[in-house]
Design a protein around this nucleic acid. Structure first.
Length: 885
RNA sequence: GGGUUUAUAGCUCAGUUGGUUAGAGCGCUACAUUGACAUUGUAGAGGUCAGAGGUUCGAAUCCUCUUAAACCCACCA
């Protein structure tokens, strides 16, 4: 006979199990088809793993993503779908380059410019490779059933071809243009960054009011004011009605007299400050757009290092932060400083990577025009026809509004539309070195955009690289073989089924994926977006190095087992909401994994000849009928929950069934009734399959111990839902509940009277019409409740020295042999009466209410009547018992 | 300034379209333990569902307002 060790030790098995999965080839759907596990014409199910950045290691957030996706993938594979989960990593241009630059500075006090582009890139590549290897190992440790044969890197040759092809196609269509626009320049990083990469931080800074001709203007940035020669106010502002748009005046300013022009524009908030401002179009986005609207001159004041240009005269060459107080000093000396608000709070823009202070600059950059019209060349999108005129923005709005893409939870659609409805052109180019080069070449005034360098001498490639999200925008199809439109994977698996990712990158990534995919392929990238929440520490704080509250997924996997970690990340969390994680929580799932192990251990000791494919077992006893009825309900409910992305409820249903019903009741009864080999085999077989997506290691380990090492659970078929007689099941479940209630009632009395757990008692039951039923199950009841003599009659009198109670319509008398305490009993019965009486009164009132009786559905009224009858019966019996004391 | 979310037992959370005497896990209390499992079992205590109104025969659930916390967006000169 096979036997399991006493406790489940994850460390002993996890490594081998993963290797066995890998060796089996079953992560690859083609192998599943070859081996006959999946039918070649089965429905495809595909998820592209959101590729982790090669900036370091996987954190707990990655673990959530891996766990949820692995549940879906393992479920669909077992269900028989042609299931593909594609792994990859992302070069994360700015994040990776910043990290390597920081290391370079800390270790060698060198900048990237000291090394030069080629040498620096070699260093980044090495760093990326190391990170990649670490990440892959970590992902494997989490038990992920990713098809490693299809792994991609966002910067590899195939993806580079995809990027160049996409860029050219969008350029040829006029959707990509090169132009001078204001960008977020990071002088520290020496690159522009996109709006979403900028974080704003609140800061208290002096706010200065200066006299500017007849006006008072306010600013927290005096150093930008050298070139200011336009003064802007709201056209409706009555205070300044006397000034006309285009009027000019002379006034004294920082470095002498200037000529200023009056501009009326409704971008000015009359409530703010004096309602008048001067503008610096080169270094402020709002000002830039005002200048654009009125065709005003723009002048650069600050250079790309963050120092003042010659326009600042005596301040030229100074860093802006050093110059600021000196400029204020000078204006004060000239009598132009009106007042200073020292309590002013505003927010400053910094680069989310590296923390550099953003200085807006006007620069020539590459952009995606989201509002330009173009003709759809190809469309499989419902509601958009081939040949129809669209804009990128309109497509983005359409596909979600028309439910071509479902966002879960639904409320994030609001975020999506908030973003998409206010969409601005997308700045593609970065002055970074690590990334896809812009596929553009220049020769004098000539510009060429293409896949390869143009023919002829003297062409120079654009030194800039592309925003990481440009390549990431193609991740639903570039990992499947695009631009080869005939690639089998692309044909089979696109559009993919689910994009599962954190809600924090909805706008970063999801929007860009939809944009790129709909334009380039005329398809949506995925049908469903499932957004998980962030994992926080037990106090709800973000995990960070400085708080030292980081839970490392591998560390806790070592300690508690990977299955426990996976479960703890899924149970108790709902899509779009953050979850709190603690080691205690993980520990409780470690306990559960061990429980499942011991359930299996017990089962194994009680079955002869374990076989995995047996016909549906027949039930011999009530308990058998009950557990099978419950099992099929559980199969149904778990299947439906997983299908509808309710991963936590599915696991909770399973856990409650496994622990509270199977282990606590059925296995105990199996010990009494005996001879349950076939049915135990069937139940074990089914729950191992049901648990497999959540806890792949422990279930696979048990499976191989039970059925042999050549067997692989991950390739098994998902349990089928049995055709059941619902009415019968309900009756069986009700009957079993009566048995449970009786047993629990007796145990409760025993506990209350301090009857020693080992001691047997006598119990008398007035069972009315349930007499025959209870007699049939008397042995089970006796053993479960430690009853020596169990007397069951339709109606019997309370024996001497017995404690009585009423449960499910039964009157139960427990002989506590002399320990009966009449006062205590009176008190107990009074307490119960006090509980039932208001309940009855409530129900009576409800049923006397004509509005209720006429308005409520009949079923509800009937139900309430039944409740009342049961409660009244109970009350009556309680009174009788009281009288007999 | 606009928007979103959260508020249910000491803690972490369930509670599907309004109809349960409001549930689970952890923790807590008492008792038990060499027979699958102390990573356990049995029994139990613990909640005016943030507050105030309203709709309804009926509200934890729908509406309005208030309070508290978290987050996102915005052209805070």
């Amino acid at each position: 006979m096979k036997e399991l060790e006493k406790a489940y030790e994850p460390k002993e098995y996890e490594g081998n199990i993963y290797k066995k999965w890998e060796d089996s080839g079953l992560f690859n759907p083609d192998v599943c088809i070859e081996k006959g596990i999946t039918k070649s014409d089965a429905d495809p199910f595909c998820i592209i793993l959101p590729p982790p950045n090669v900036t370091g290691t996987l954190h707990i957030g990655h673990a959530v993503m891996l766990a949820i996706e692995d549940v879906m993938v393992r479920y669909h594979r077992m269900k028989g779908d042609r299931t593909l989960w594609v792994p990859g990593t992302d070069h994360a241009a700015i994040a990776t380059q910043e990290k390597v630059e920081r290391i370079l500075w800390n270790e060698e006090k060198k900048t990237r410019h000291d090394l030069g582009r080629d040498v620096f890139l070699k260093k980044v590549e090495q760093f990326a490779q190391d990170s990649h290897d670490r990440i892959i190992n970590q992902a494997k440790r989490m038990g992920t059933s990713l098809d490693w044969s299809r792994e991609y890197y966002s910067l590899d040759d195939t993806r580079n071809l995809a990027v160049k092809t996409a860029f050219k196609k969008m350029y040829d269509e006029g959707l990509i243009y090169r132009g001078d626009r204001i960008v977020n320049w990071d002088p520290k990083m020496q690159s522009n960054v996109s709006d979403i990469e900028v974080v704003r931080k609140e800061e208290k800074a002096p706010f200065y009011y200066f006299q500017y001709g007849p006006f008072t203007i306010g600013t927290s940035r005096p150093e930008t004011k050298f070139g200011d020669k336009y003064v802007v106010m709201h056209p409706e502002d009555a205070r300044y009605a006397q000034y006309k748009h285009g009027d000019t005046f002379e006034c004294e300013w920082i470095n002498g007299k200037i000529k200023a022009t009056i501009i009326k524009d409704d971008a000015v908030d009359p409530e703010f400050g004096s309602g008048v401002m001067t503008i610096t179009p080169w270094h402020d986005a709002t000002d830039f757009f005002i200048a654009e609207r009125h065709g005003l001159e723009k002048k650069q004041v600050i250079d790309f290092q963050g120092n003042l240009l010659p326009i600042a005269e005596e301040f030229a060459g100074m860093n802006i932060l050093d110059a600021r107080p000196k400029i204020v000093e000078k204006l004060k000396a000239k009598g132009l400083l009106v007042r200073v608000d020292e309590e002013y709070v505003h927010s400053t823009a910094t680069n989310s990577r590296g923390g550099g202070l953003i200085e807006p600059q006007i620069m020539k950059q590459w952009w995606v025009d989201v509002k330009k019209e173009f003709v759809m060349e190809h469309s499989e999108i419902e509601g958009i026809k081939k040949g129809e005129t669209m804009t990128l923005q309109k497509i983005l709005q359409h596909v979600v509004r028309a439910k071509q893409i479902e966002i879960l939870p639904e409320r994030f659609e609001k975020n999506y539309f908030n973003w998409v409805d206010n969409l601005l052109d997308w700045c593609l180019s970065r002055q970074l070195w690590y990334g896809h080069r812009v596929p553009a070449w220049y020769r004098g005034e000539e510009l060429y955009v293409g896949i390869e360098a143009p023919e002829g001498e003297g062409w120079e490639q654009d030194p800039d690289t592309l925003d990481t999200w440009f390549s990431a925008g193609m991740f639903s199809f570039s990992p499947l073989g695009w631009p080869d439109e005939n690639a089998t994977d692309l044909q089979t698996y696109h559009p993919t089924n689910v994009l599962e990712t954190g809600y924090d990158i909805l706008t970063f990534w999801v929007v860009r994926m939809i944009l790129m995919t709909t334009f380039l392929r005329g398809q949506v990238p995925f049908k469903t977006v499932y957004l998980h929440g962030l994992v926080r520490d037990e106090q709800g704080r973000k995990m960070s190095k400085s708080l030292d509250n980081i839970i490392d997924p591998l560390e806790v996997s070592d300690k508690f087992g990977t299955d426990a970690v996976r479960l703890s990340l899924m149970v108790g969390s709902t899509p779009g909401n953050d979850t709190k994680l603690s080691e205690e929580k993980i520990g409780s799932f470690r306990n559960f994994a061990n429980k499942l192990w011991n359930i299996s251990r017990f089962t194994l000791l009680n079955i002869e000849d374990p076989q995995k494919d047996r016909e549906y077992p027949s039930a011999k006893t009530l308990a058998d009928q009950w557990i099978l009825a419950r099992l099929s309900q559980v199969v149904k409910s778990v299947t439906e929950d997983i299908e509808s992305y309710k991963f936590s409820p599915a696991a909770e249903t399973l856990r409650d069934f496994t622990w509270n019903e199977l282990a606590d009741w059925y296995l105990e009864i199996a010990k009494i009734e005996g001879n349950k080999s076939h049915i135990l085999n069937f139940i074990l077989n089914t729950i191992l399959k049901l648990w497999h997506p959540y806890m792949p290691f422990v279930t696979e380990t048990i499976w191989q111990k039970v059925y042999g090492e050549e067997e692989i659970l991950m390739g098994e078929k998902w349990p089928v839902m049995q055709e059941t007689n619902t009415a019968m099941d309900t009756m069986v479940i009700m009957d079993f509940m009566l048995l449970q209630n009786l047993v629990t009632a007796v145990r409760s009395v025993r506990s209350e009277y301090g009857v020693e757990p080992g001691k047997f008692v006598s119990v008398y039951v007035s069972a009315a019409e349930k007499k025959a039923f209870l007699e049939k199950n008397s042995e089970t009841i006796q053993k479960l409740a430690r009853i020596e003599d169990l007397v069951i009659e339709e109606q019997l009198n309370k024996p001497e020295n017995a404690v009585s109670c009423v449960e499910s319509g039964l009157e139960i008398f427990v002989d506590v042999s002399g320990a009966l305490d009449v006062e205590k009993e009176k008190e107990r019965i009074h307490k119960e009466i006090a509980q039932v009486e208001p309940y009855i009164t409530g129900l009576q009132k409800k049923l006397e209410n004509q509005d209720f009786v006429s308005n409520a559905p009949e079923a509800v009224v009937t139900q309430e009547k039944e409740k009342l009858a049961v409660a009244q019966d109970k009350l009556q019996k309680l009174h009788e018992q009281l009288a007999k004391l």
